[in-house]
């Protein structure tokens, strides 16, 4: 999966337009990345990549790239 495809998955999850996200974008600057989105992210990561996210891991995310780095496929 290319980096763009991974970003597209996140854009789809957050209901953003294609191209809205870049790896260096700060998560704090994305209004849609709220508590509900974090639950959706848990499901996405487990279903698509078999990665289980804990609360501590999610708290450690600063940029979109931090999430993409765990998308190991």
């Amino acid at each position: 999966m290319t980096e763009r495809e991974k970003l597209a998955l996140l854009e789809d999850m957050l209901e953003l337009d294609e191209g809205d996200l870049t790896v260096d974008k700060a998560l704090d600057d994305i209004d849609e990345y709220d508590s509900m989105a974090k639950l959706s992210l848990i499901v996405l990561m487990e279903d698509e990549f078999g990665v289980k996210l804990t609360g501590d891991v999610i708290k450690g995310f600063e940029t979109v790239g931090d999430i993409v780095a765990l998308m190991n496929k």
Binding site: S35, K38, L39, I42, K52, T54, I58
Partner: peptide
């Protein structure tokens, strides 16, 4: 509550 912990507990 710890929403993420509860969510992870539930779906696993």
């Amino acid at each position: 509550g710890d929403d993420i912990a509860v969510f992870n507990f539930t779906i696993s």
